[in-house]
Simulated assay, not measured.
Amino acid sequence: MRNFLREWQSEVRRTLTGSPDVPPEWSLTFAQGDDPGYYLPGSAVWSVHGGLPTLIAGIRSLLMQSLHPGVLAGVHDHSNFREDPVGRLVMTTRWIHAVTYGSKADALAACRRVQRLHESVRGKYIDGQGEVRDYSANDPELLRWVHVTFTDSFLCAHKVWGGPIPGGPDAYVREWAQAGRLMGVDAPPLSEADLRPQLDAWFASGQLRADERVAETVAFIRNPPLHPFLMPGYRVLFAAAVLSLEPRYRAMLGLRTARLGPLPLPVTIAARVTLAVVRLALDRTGPSEHAARERLRRLGVA
């Protein structure tokens, strides 16, 4: 039993950080740097990104982002997500943590690294109205969709499964807008109320599309090649992500909330229990946050 628990803990850590037993090297670099960074302890961003509901938010944001055919074309045509989904997750985690916990230099370097990778991500896609369009991963409107769906998903998941947000939901949207600007998003939303009209406009415009490629992506997200130890918990978190989606997006994605016959399953509670179990495999303070606090103490900020 002890060996099972040890192996399970290692798999959780490897999946989330790329390193099963020690903090990933990239997280330790956040102790360096000569400025406090864009966010501090007590900020809305630290509160949201330091919580385990981000696991549900990440699944939800991937589902949402797949509905834009330009974004999805870039992933399908240029990404190795099928062969190395954990590696892709770690790359995304590294970017989020660099912007959240790193110095401004760390955040800028992480964003520039992603933008350089995006330079070669170009091609054509068919939009929701059947028109052939060119796409570029650095296109501001595609980046806006990614930013808005990310922000909406992380906020939504935290409101259901997380604790209070310092300054409230508007503070998180306003603070995380800086990440959007660093990535090239012009005038990102600054409040929760600003998110809604932008999502509604995309839906009403017909730009979003549900087709065979979306169905393939949803099937992969539903059943990724994770270690068998992790799959029971992942299925609960996937069901939670589906539950948190608006019905109109669930319909486009071909998803339904979890039910046993006519009765809805207690997904919200099950997800809360699953997150508590995952917490057992992780330190209370993650390595990125710990390194950031070291930097802040050295600078006399915290």
Rank of each mutant, 00 (worst) to 15 (best):
V214K: 07
S205P: 01
R256Q: 13
A171D: 05
W202E: 09
L253V: 05
T217H: 14
Q178I: 15
G233K: 03
M252W: 07
Q198R: 14
S205K: 00
V148Y: 04
E212P: 03
Y172A: 08
D200V: 01
R222S: 12
A215H: 00
G163E: 15
Y249L: 13
S191K: 11
A251V: 01
Y172D: 14
D152P: 00
C156T: 15
A219Y: 11
P232Y: 08
A193Y: 10
R250W: 06
S205T: 07
E212F: 06
V214L: 12
L190V: 14
A201S: 04
V146K: 13
R209Q: 08
S191T: 15
P197R: 01
V146A: 13
D152G: 04
G180R: 14
R196I: 06
L208E: 08
G162V: 00
H227E: 10
P247F: 02
F229E: 01
D211K: 06
P166E: 14
F229Q: 03
R213I: 02
V185R: 05
L199W: 02
G162E: 05
P197M: 02
Q207A: 12
G184P: 12
P225F: 06
R209I: 03
V236N: 03
A210K: 11
L155C: 14
V146H: 12
P247Q: 06
R248Q: 10
F238I: 15
S191G: 10
S153D: 10
V242Y: 15
P164F: 04
R209V: 09
F203Y: 11
D152F: 01
E175Y: 12
V160D: 00
G184H: 11
R235G: 08
V214R: 10
R235Q: 08
M231W: 07
Q198S: 08
G254F: 00
I165Y: 11
R174E: 11
I221C: 09
D200L: 02
M252G: 05
R196D: 04
V242L: 15
A210P: 11
P247Y: 02
P232Q: 08
L199M: 07
R213E: 12
H227S: 13
I221Y: 11
V185S: 07
R196V: 12
L230N: 05
C156M: 11
L190H: 12
L190E: 07
A179V: 09
W176L: 09
L253H: 04
Q207S: 09
V173P: 03
V185F: 05
L208N: 03
L226S: 02
R174L: 06
A187H: 08
H227V: 03
D211W: 03
T151P: 09
D186K: 13
A215P: 00
L155F: 13
I165W: 13
I221W: 12
G163C: 12
F154G: 01
G167V: 05
P169M: 09
H158S: 09
T149K: 10
P228M: 08
K159R: 12
F220L: 12
A171W: 07
F150Q: 11
G180H: 10
D200W: 00
G233T: 04
Q178P: 09
Q198G: 01
G184T: 05
V160F: 11
V146T: 10
N223H: 09
T149W: 02
A240V: 07
R196W: 09
F154R: 02
W176E: 11
L245W: 15
F150C: 07
S205W: 00
P164K: 12
F150W: 13
G167Y: 11
L245H: 12
